[in-house]
Design a protein around this nucleic acid. Structure first.
Length: 510
RNA sequence: GGUCCGUUCGUCUAGGGGUUAGGACUCAUGGUUUUCAUCCAUGCAACAGGGGUUCGAAUCCCCUACGGACUACCA
């Protein structure tokens, strides 16, 4: 049998920013597509006009972009199967709804919202916990199954408000094989007569989704587990429309759970727990409320992707650091777990730290520059690169290099109190002064010479490291801890170091 | 409530009949370091419970418990 070309879609609805769970779904789709040399489409599911949020679609495209998932087909890039916004595909759906009516798989329903709630309440009162519009209840409602044909015609011609519902068969087992979960079987008695076509002329998710996946020749539907319960309905739709042969394979992904308590990670968990849930910053256009994103917090998209990929998937080896290309090569849906994964912020930071460290000082320098600029500090590129190289081991984000090593770019304006209190003894000024003069006489001011000089000084004076080093460090950096003083001093240069010592000796008072 | 899906260290997970149940993050301890971080080493720590099947079950089956998703003219 000829293999079908792999075509997958990520199909968010533009009701707000994408959150991590959505990004991971997109990522798995992307990885799967690329692994099989297939296509990754972005389809905007905006059939609910009342929930449309302006800027959300742009946000989604931008976020995907930042995460380095290139879109093969979509509204932002075009393609042969467009349009890629369901609102723009509106005229395409009606015929399929009509087809379902003609084949007897669907029917018109004229019930008003009030009548529907009335029915539900009546059922509840009768002891039915979750009332459904189904094979039983539909006989008591106003629809083309109960109303005389002439009246249905009359109402239709009069343009009376109506929806189209699927006629869910009675007592049939719908089975399908999910790539992640295996065979899933649901009896149709448990599924209601879902609305396929709304009274506003738009299809619901279910119809639009199936029609579009068919028309766009989607081979695999990879989506969140929240869709598992409606998958049987979709399967039925493919069958009723005569598309059983073209039905895509399904893979329902486990959910990403809140790190605390229970439940799936939601948009509202945002900054509540001290970490972003969004890939990039988002400002709610209605309320002006701001939510922080990984990009702006200083995370690398590679680290973010790597972390996300491992939330529910693993390569089966002990390798944890994967470039996008490696992820593509290693990815397989077989290795996606079934159970939900709690998000772990510590691990996310660890990934970022690893990615930071892989880079050389020259790579890091341009990243640090904007932070220097906004702190109104400046330095030569090669100097910044050296600072980065020296400091990267102790940073999680590039900006940490500035945070931890501000003294590389300006003389300390204050001195760490704890260190002064504990280490700045009565004789310290005198010792530091002597060391200063020794350093001043050094012909070559490199780390090695400084180290040698320092050591010789200790030996001559019969002093321990602890008696000299903290004073030296705090004088030059203002801090009690940090990178090797030899390296720091060498980088700063002789003049600057001597200068700082002089100032410190004048300034520091016990 | 109903339907469906799930359950291995605190967290992410490996493992699919015979393993001292492995790795990673976190944490703790020790070593390296003038210090902090890094790095290295070590440690803490798990098969939800009960029944089967089997010579043998974390692994297969059933039940229970717990968790989750869904239950709209939202996706």
């Amino acid at each position: 049998m000829k293999e079908r070309r792999v075509r997958v879609r990520f199909a968010p609805s533009p009701t707000g920013p994408l959150h991590m769970g959505g990004v991971r779904t997109a990522l798995y789709n992307y990885l799967f597509a690329k692994k099989h040399n297939g296509d990754f489409l972005l389809r905007i599911e905006d059939t609910d006009q009342t929930r449309y949020v302006s800027g959300a679609e742009e946000y989604i495209v931008d976020a995907l972009n930042w995460c380095q998932m290139s879109i093969d087909e979509g509204a932002s890039v075009g393609g042969e199967n467009g349009p890629y916004r369901q609102s723009e595909r509106k005229p395409m759906y009606k015929q399929y709804a009509d087809q379902l009516i003609e084949s007897g798989s669907a029917y018109y329903a004229f019930d008003t919202p009030e009548e529907l709630t009335e029915m539900r309440e009546r059922m509840k009162a009768a002891g039915v916990s979750s009332p459904q519009y189904n094979a039983i209840t539909r006989s008591g409602m106003k629809n083309s199954l109960t109303l005389p044909a002439e009246e249905v015609q009359r109402r239709l011609l009069a343009n009376e408000k109506h929806v189209i519902r699927i006629k869910m068969p009675r007592n049939e087992d719908v089975k399908f094989e999910d790539i992640i979960r295996g065979w899933v079987s649901v009896n149709t008695n448990n599924i209601d007569d879902k609305v396929l076509f709304k009274s506003d002329g738009m299809p619901t998710y279910h119809l639009a989704n199936v029609v579009d996946d068919y028309l766009m020749n989607i081979s695999h539907v990879i989506r969140g587990e929240e869709w598992l319960p409606s998958a049987p309905l979709h399967v039925l739709l493919y069958q009723s429309l005569g598309w059983a042969e073209q039905m895509p394979k399904f893979a329902h992904l486990p959910l990403i759970l809140k790190p605390d308590g229970n439940g799936k990670l939601s948009k509202r968990d945002g900054d509540r727990l001290g970490f972003p849930v969004f890939p990039t910053n988002w400002t709610n256009p209605e309320t002006g409320e701001e939510s922080s994103g990984y990009r702006e917090r200083g995370y690398y998209p590679e680290a973010f992707n790597n972390m996300l990929a491992f939330l529910g998937w693993n390569p089966g080896t002990t390798q944890e650091l994967f470039s996008m290309q490696e992820l593509v090569e290693a990815f397989s849906l077989d290795r996606v777990g079934k159970a939900g994964a709690k998000f772990d912020f510590d691990k996310t930071n660890w990934f970022n730290q690893q990615y930071l460290r892989m880079q050389g000082g020259e790579q890091l320098a341009p990243q640090l520059k904007p932070f220097l600029a906004s702190a109104q500090l400046e330095a030569e590129d090669s100097y910044i690169a050296q600072v980065c190289e020296l400091m990267k081991e102790r940073a999680t984000f590039v900006q940490d290099i500035l945070k931890e090593g501000r003294y590389f770019f300006e003389a300390p304006t204050s001195y760490d109190e704890k260190t002064i209190k504990k280490k700045w003894k009565e004789q310290t000024p005198e010792i530091i002064k002597e060391l200063r003069d020794l350093l001043a006489a050094l012909p070559s001011f490199d780390a090695e010479s400084i180290g040698a000089c320092f050591k010789a000084f200790l030996e001559a004076k019969e002093l321990g490291f602890g008696a000299v080093m903290p004073g030296f460090r705090v004088s030059v950096t203002g801090l009690g801890a940090g990178a090797s003083m030899n390296d720091i001093a060498a980088l700063l240069g002789k003049e600057e170091v001597l200068n700082r010592i002089d100032i410190a000796l004048k300034t520091i008072k016990k």
